[in-house]
């Protein structure tokens, strides 16, 4: 198969690939062996440590922790969707009085590190609203702004002729938005929304820095002594995160493939202005 980088390999190239495969596999094995040997030599990976990790009700704690992580993340996703829809509607408004404050709000909260929001809300309001709401509120301010941009990009991705036709039929702006633009835009936005859920889930872990009892905090709480057990339990927590987020990522990919297959605009992808970008999350 020819790609933009490599042509279809001939006999010489195929031999070169085979040699590279062998060399790289050996290199990889050597690295893995070295890491395992180091961990064994430093007594990180011992039967005792593994047993302790699975016996001392560590698993229970991790599961409990994940429940509170998912609770905060789930609430935050719901409120972010709502806030995002309102902010996007505001930013797309015809009235400058509504548009400008919404634009300023979105741009400000996309540019500020999430941790600053956590600390500000925690120190100023935590005593009144509690840690769960602190986490949810901070996540909503940031992700609501990012989702607003996703919604806006989705609506702008609908072909111009659609809204022009609707206006020509005499529809009002609200009707055009609700009956014509939104139903089509949802298809463009859905993959990006699912990807944003991954970001929310990962960012929920920051809640532990303001004493919200999510999974990383609970895991830290039971392994105060740094060392083997801490490593194993962190690895366990990381594994669960990877499984959940990987599945969400696959779901986003699937939606993107499926929706673009029947979409008339092949490859109409959301172009969210770079800048404070959705992308990474913490």
């Amino acid at each position: 198969m020819s790609s933009v980088l490599f042509d279809v390999p001939g006999p010489r190239a195929r031999r070169r690939y085979q040699i590279l495969t062998a060399v790289f596999a050996l290199l990889l094995l050597a690295i893995v062996a070295w890491v395992v040997q180091r961990l064994l030599a430093e007594k990180v990976l011992t039967a005792d440590a593994v047993n302790a990790t699975f016996q001392n009700r560590y698993l229970e704690v991790v599961i409990e922790g994940f429940i509170s992580t998912l609770k905060a993340a789930g609430l935050a996703i719901l409120t972010s969707l709502l806030a995002g829809a309102l902010l996007a509607a505001g930013r797309l408004s015809n009235h400058a009085v509504v548009r400008w404050p919404c634009t300023a709000f979105i741009e400000f909260f996309r540019a500020v590190p999430l941790l600053l929001l956590f600390f500000y809300i925690f120190y100023a309001y935590e005593s009144q609203i509690g840690t769960l709401l602190t986490v949810v509120l901070a996540l909503t301010l940031y992700n609501g702004s990012v989702l607003a941009e996703i919604f806006r990009a989705g609506i702008n991705a609908v072909q111009k002729g659609q809204s022009e036709a609707a206006y020509a039929l005499g529809m009002r702006k609200t009707q055009v938005m609700n009956l014509i633009l939104m139903p089509q835009a949802v298809r463009f936005m859905l993959p990006a929304i699912v990807s944003q859920c991954v970001v929310v889930l990962k960012d929920t872990t920051l809640g532990q820095l303001i004493t919200y009892d999510e999974v990383v905090r609970q895991a830290r709480g039971i392994t105060l002594a740094p060392g083997a057990e801490a490593l194993l339990i962190y690895a366990l927590v990381a594994l669960v995160f990877i499984l959940i987020n990987y599945s969400l990522g696959k779901l986003a990919e699937y939606l993107e493939r499926r929706l673009s297959r029947r979409g008339e605009r092949a490859g109409a992808r959301l172009t969210i202005e770079p800048g404070m970008g959705a992308g990474a999350g913490a």
Binding site: V198, T205, L206, L231, Y234, I242, A282
Partner: peptide, 17 residues
């Protein structure tokens, strides 16, 4: 797919060990 905070803690625990 791993939270950054967890990566930071993992390295924080791994290097001293």
């Amino acid at each position: 797919n791993t939270p950054l905070l967890l990566i930071v803690y993992l390295f924080g625990a791994l290097f001293p060990v």
